[in-house]
Design a protein around this nucleic acid. Structure first.
Length: 358
DNA sequence: CGCCCGTTTCCTGATT
DNA sequence: AAATCAGGAAACGGGC
């Protein structure tokens, strides 16, 4: 009944845990809003792909539609350029405060929303699975918290977590607009319950993360919470030495001419050169399994090696897609783990060319 | 110029 | 939670 992109366990958690205190309509609306807000962080680059109105409460669906479809560019500051670490080039999805207020007002009919939320003016974060900080939501969170006390303690863990800096990407507010995906120097503290085993009929419960903290403690909110991220990290290989195309050229056996390598050849050369051991390494050389350690740098190298006459930036996403194109032929295959691939049986015979020596 | 290969780009559901 | 993975579809650049 819900689209596949929607996390079923989050629905269940609200329904199961809050079911006794919420009507099913209220519970579903809350789930809808949570889901909508989660899309800000996760699916910002997908135009209209995550929303199917028929799966939602009609009232909520209407608001979501207004929110994610039209006029997105109207809210973008002109000086904002998207340069996300994951390489997506689409503009960020944008929600302004009025829109979010509108959602909450409509769904929760909460006239006191946000008025006492001191972080709201300049650093509100509509991060995934955070519950919007209305007073109504606050009550729901308390209810959730109290409900958990009815479960045997060995069935869940109560977690207060403060993530390390420089690891999270959170929305940024600029010119009264919530943007997404800028690196966030320090995540807000979170409070949540996690179940201790998968067989439990209890589901993970997210207590709205920072909002609970804001309402309940004297915890200081960093007044300058966002890092500036105008520059790419310095490339290690660039700092060691300049790019040398000769390292990568391949001499054709048939005509003796040098040419730039194909992707699978590039990968062999990359892995064979200790100079790039920080970029990619075999994890099992006999089986041909390797892993990218610095995937963005690998993408940059591939861009330079390929030397395509265009000014777009090669991303790890595209590099990985290129590798996946080898799957059907058996030249490459997938391997367990992130950033991990494997040379297939079809790759060895194709390596009939050797790197040019200068 | 046209064709085709080898990606590159984009996308979207699924997975971690 | 927010990234990566799988793979379809179509565009693209370079070589011939």
């Amino acid at each position: 009944m819900y689209p596949a992109t929607r996390s079923s366990d989050s629905d269940s958690s609200w329904n199961d845990i809050l079911g006794s205190s919420l009507s099913s309509t209220e519970s579903r609306k809350l789930g809808d809003v949570n889901f909508l807000i989660s899309q800000v962080g996760t699916y910002y680059s997908r135009e209209g792909s995550i929303f199917d109105p028929e799966y939602y409460d009609p009232e909520v669906a209407r608001i979501i539609e207004e929110c994610i479809r039209p006029n997105q560019s109207n809210h973008l500051p002109s000086n904002y350029t998207q340069n996300t670490p994951n390489g997506y080039s689409a503009p960020p999805r944008v929600f302004d405060h009025e829109t979010i207020d509108g959602i909450c007002a409509s769904v929760f009919d909460d006239s006191q929303q946000s008025s006492s939320y001191h972080g709201y003016d300049n650093n509100y974060m509509a991060s995934s699975f955070d519950t919007y900080p209305t007073t109504t939501n606050q009550q729901y969170l308390y209810t959730t918290h109290n409900s958990m006390l009815n479960y045997p303690e060995q069935n869940y863990s109560y977690i207060e977590y403060q993530a390390p800096p420089n690891t999270y990407y959170q929305p940024v507010v600029d010119n009264n607009v919530v943007l997404v995906t800028e690196p966030y120097r320090q995540s807000n503290p979170s409070i949540r319950y996690e179940t201790n085993n998968n067989d439990s009929d209890l589901f993970n419960v997210d207590l709205g993360l920072s909002e609970v903290t804001y309402f309940n403690t004297d915890m200081q909110i960093d007044s300058v919470p966002y890092a500036s991220v105008s520059k790419e990290p310095t490339s290690k290989s660039d700092s060691i030495s300049g790019f040398n195309l000769d390292e990568w050229l391949i001499v054709s056996k048939t005509d003796g001419k040098k040419h730039r390598p194909h992707l699978c050849e590039f990968l062999r050369i990359l892995l064979d050169n200790p100079k790039y051991s920080h970029v990619a390494q075999y994890t099992d050389r006999k089986k041909g399994i390797f892993k990218f350690l610095e995937r963005h740098e690998a993408a940059k190298l591939w861009q330079d090696v390929k030397g395509r006459n265009c000014n777009t930036k090669m991303t790890y996403l595209n590099l990985a897609r290129g590798i996946r194109f080898y799957y059907p032929s058996g030249t490459m295959s997938s391997a367990e783990g992130r950033y991990t691939f494997r040379f297939g049986p079809g790759s060895r015979s194709k390596r009939s060319k050797v790197p040019a020596n200068h």
